[in-house]
């Protein structure tokens, strides 16, 4: 088994009101110097060894992300 991480983020041109709300909250909490926040999703998959990169990409583009509004990155992060 291997662990695969898929990070899904709103495309740069897509407005991210949730990230903006977090960014606006930070100065109120006394944290200065953070100019922008973008919020996405992080998936951790436990994957059998015979699952290839092409299959992982299909999973990422077909279910985990919506390619109209989101980009994704697939990473193998190690053996379990």
């Amino acid at each position: 088994m291997a662990r695969v991480v898929v990070d899904v983020m709103p495309k740069p041109e897509i407005l991210d009101p949730q990230g903006q709300a977090v960014a606006r909250a930070l100065p109120r909490l006394g944290f200065d110097g953070i100019s922008d926040v973008r919020q996405g999703k992080h998936f951790e998959l436990e994957v059998a060894d015979d699952v290839d990169d092409e299959t992982l990409a299909k999973i990422a583009v077909g279910l985990l992300s919506n390619p109209v509004i989101e980009d994704f990155v697939v990473r193998r992060v190690g053996q379990e």
């Binding site: 897509i14 407005l15 009101p17 709300a21 919506n66 109209v68």
Partner: peptide, 17 residues
């Protein structure tokens, strides 16, 4: 219908949250 590809585009969180 957007997710299914029958209509273009996507619906996202309201800008007001």
């Amino acid at each position: 219908l957007c997710e299914a590809g029958l209509l273009p585009g996507a619906l996202t969180r309201n800008s007001s949250l």
